[in-house]
Write a protein that binds this DNA or RNA. Structure first.
Length: 470
DNA sequence: GGGCCCGCAGGG
DNA sequence: CCCTGCGGGCCC
C-alpha cells in the first residue's frame, strides 16, 4: 500500500520526514510523496516535474475487462505497461490515451498488423465516446459521474478528493466551481446510462458472444399481460404474464445488465417505473406477480417488493425493515387478511431471504406503495430501486402477538437511487450504523471489486469487528 | 374505503 | 401434485 506525506510533511509509509530532494509533488493533486517509498519512482529527473501520484494515476482494472479484479500481479503488469506507454516520447498525448484505453479494455498487448482501417475507424467512434466518459483524475471509465458547470466529468470520489484538498476550480479547465456543486455534487444520471452503453459495446467488442439465456418460452406471448376467457374477473392477478423482455435466468442475482436486455440494450435502470407488478415482472426486476419475495429456500432471494402491506415495516430509502411472508390466514375467501394468525418461521421464502443475508447476496428491490406511507415510493406504479443487501435477520415478537421474520435491508448499489438523483437535498440522513456499512462497502469498491461482490459481506463483518474492538 | 373474489405463477 | 402469495378491479 502506497501512502503520501501527511499535513506535517511526514511520510505515512516510513514515518520519516523526507528531505527536499526525496520529495515529489504530484502534478495533478500537488500532494507531496516520499520518492524512496514509491514502488515506481520516476527514473529521470525530467520526469519528476510531470509526475503523477499513485492515487491520481490509480489503475483499477474495470470489471468488464479481461483483466480479473483482485489479481495483483496482473494489475502490476498493467501498471507497468501503462507506464511504458506514458514514457514513450514518440507518441502524442492523444495516441497515448488511445493506447491506454486499448490496454484497459482488455485488448491484447503488442502490435496487431491484421487490424484494417475499417476496424480502426469503428474503434475511433468508441474512443471518442470513451474519452468523454473517462475521468481526468483516474483515467478510468467514470464511476458515479458528476459534471461541473463548465461541462467536465469526474468520478464522484475523485471529485470529492479534489474538493477535500481545498481546490475550488475545475481540474480540467480551471474554471471556478460554485460552492453548491462543491458541497453537493450531483450524480449525472444521463451519463450513467451512456456509461452502461459504452461498457456494453466495449465488452461485445472485446470478443466472445455475450452470455444470453432464453429463460421462458416467450415466443407466443404478447407484449402485454392479458386475461383469459376463463378468468372473467378483471383483477390483474388473474391475468397471464406477457413476454419477458430480458434474458436473465430466474435465479439471477443483482442488477439486470445491458447485455441481457436485447430490447433496449440498457439493462434495467434504477428508477425505472412500470404500470403494475405484471409489467415489472416482464422486465425481470421482480418475477412473482403477487408474492413479495422471489427466491428459493436452498438458493437465496433474488428480489423483494415493498408495498406498505405490513404496518411494522419501516422504509428509510437507504435502508428499510421488511417482514417475512406467512402467518396470515388466507384460507377461504378472505384473501386480503391483514392479520397474523400464526408464527412465521425461517422456511420457504423467509429462508431464502435468510440465505441471502448470510451469504451477502444482492437483492433487487421494487417499491409499489399504494398509500403514501413513505416518501420513497411513487404515487403510482412499481419502481425499481436497485440492489440492497440484507444486513441482518431475526425473529420478532409482537405483530398481533405472533412471531414474524424481520430483515434489515441496506442499499448497496453504485447507481444513484431515485431520491438522490431526482430530489437533490432530500436524501435521507444515514443511520450511524448504516454509515459504517456504506464505508465498508466503499472500502471494497476501492479495492476494485464490483459492489455486488459476494465477499463484501465478510469484509463488512471485519469492519464491524474492528470498530467494536476500538 | 373496506372487503370480496378471481386465477396465475412458482416453490416444494 | 398441492399450496401459497406485499394484486387489483369491483361491489357494497
Amino acid at each position: 500500500m502506497e501512502l503520501p506525506c501527511d499535513g506535517a510533511g511526514i511520510c505515512m509509509a516510513c514515518k520519516n520526514k523526507p528531505p527536499n530532494e526525496e520529495t515529489l509533488n504530484c502534478k495533478t493533486c500537488a500532494t507531496p510523496w516520499h520518492a524512496t517509498c514509491l514502488v515506481y519512482p520516476p527514473q529521470e529527473l525530467a520526469d519528476t516535474l510531470q509526475w503523477e501520484c499513485p492515487d491520481c494515476s490509480m489503475i483499477n482494472p474495470p470489471s468488464t475487462s479481461a483483466v480479473a479484479a483482485g489479481r495483483s500481479e496482473e494489475a502490476g503488469e498493467l501498471i507497468a505497461s501503462i507506464r511504458k506507454i506514458e514514457d514513450d516520447k514518440s507518441l502524442t498525448e492523444q495516441e497515448k490515451a488511445k493506447k491506454r484505453q486499448k490496454l484497459l479494455s482488455g485488448a491484447t498487448a503488442g502490435p496487431s498488423p491484421s487490424d484494417g482501417d475499417e476496424k480502426k475507424e469503428k474503434n475511433d467512434v468508441l474512443d471518442i465516446l470513451d474519452k468523454e466518459l473517462t475521468c481526468s483524475f483516474c483515467m478510468q471509465m467514470l464511476d458515479r459521474p458528476v459534471t461541473t458547470p463548465c461541462g467536465h466529468n469526474f468520478c464522484l470520489k475523485c471529485f470529492q478528493r479534489w474538493i477535500g484538498q481545498g481546490k475550488r476550480t475545475c481540474a480540467y479547465c480551471r474554471v471556478q466551481i460554485p460552492p453548491k456543486m462543491a458541497s453537493q455534487p450531483r450524480i449525472n444520471s444521463t451519463l450513467v446510462i451512456a456509461i452502461r452503453m459504452a461498457r456494453m459495446s466495449r465488452s461485445s467488442n472485446a470478443g466472445g458472444a455475450p452470455k444470453v439465456y432464453h429463460f421462458v418460452q416467450n415466443q407466443n406471448r404478447p407484449d402485454k399481460a392479458y386475461t383469459t376467457e376463463r378468468a372473467k374477473r378483471a383483477g390483474k392477478a388473474n391475468a397471464c404474464s406477457g413476454k419477458i423482455f430480458v434474458t436473465v435466468p430466474p435465479d439471477h442475482f443483482g442488477p439486470i445488465p445491458a447485455e441481457n436486455d436485447p430490447e433496449r440494450n440498457m439493462g434495467v435502470l434504477v428508477g425505472e417505473i412500470w404500470e403494475d407488478r405484471l409489467a415489472c415482472r416482464q422486465w425481470g426486476a421482480h418475477l412473482p406477480h403477487v408474492a413479495g419475495i422471489a427466491g428459493q429456500s436452498t438458493h437465496g432471494s433474488q428480489s423483494v417488493a415493498l408495498s406498505g402491506g405490513y404496518l411494522d415495516d419501516e422504509d428509510h430509502g437507504e435502508w428499510f425493515l421488511y417482514t417475512g411472508s406467512g402467518g396470515r390466514d388466507l384460507s377461504g375467501n378472505k384473501r386480503t387478511n391483514k392479520d397474523q394468525s400464526f408464527d412465521q418461521k425461517f422456511d420457504k421464502m423467509n429462508e431464502a431471504l435468510r440465505v441471502s443475508c448470510l451469504k451477502g447476496y444482492p437483492v433487487r428491490v421494487v417499491r409499489s406503495h399504494k398509500e403514501k406511507r413513505s416518501s420513497y415510493a411513487p404515487e403510482t406504479g412499481v419502481r425499481y430501486d436497485g440492489v440492497y443487501r440484507i444486513e441482518k435477520c431475526w425473529r420478532k415478537n409482537g405483530i398481533q402477538g405472533f412471531k414474524v421474520c424481520r430483515y434489515l435491508f441496506v442499499r448497496c448499489d453504485n447507481e444513484p437511487a431515485p431520491w438522490t438523483s431526482d430530489v437533490q437535498g432530500d436524501r435521507p440522513r444515514a443511520h450511524p450504523v448504516i454509515k459504517e456499512l456504506k464505508n465498508a462497502i466503499d472500502i471494497t469498491e476501492r479495492k476494485g471489486s464490483p459492489s455486488w461482490d459476494y465477499d463484501v459481506r465478510k469484509k463488512l463483518l471485519d469492519v464491524e469487528k474492528a470498530s467494536a474492538s476500538q
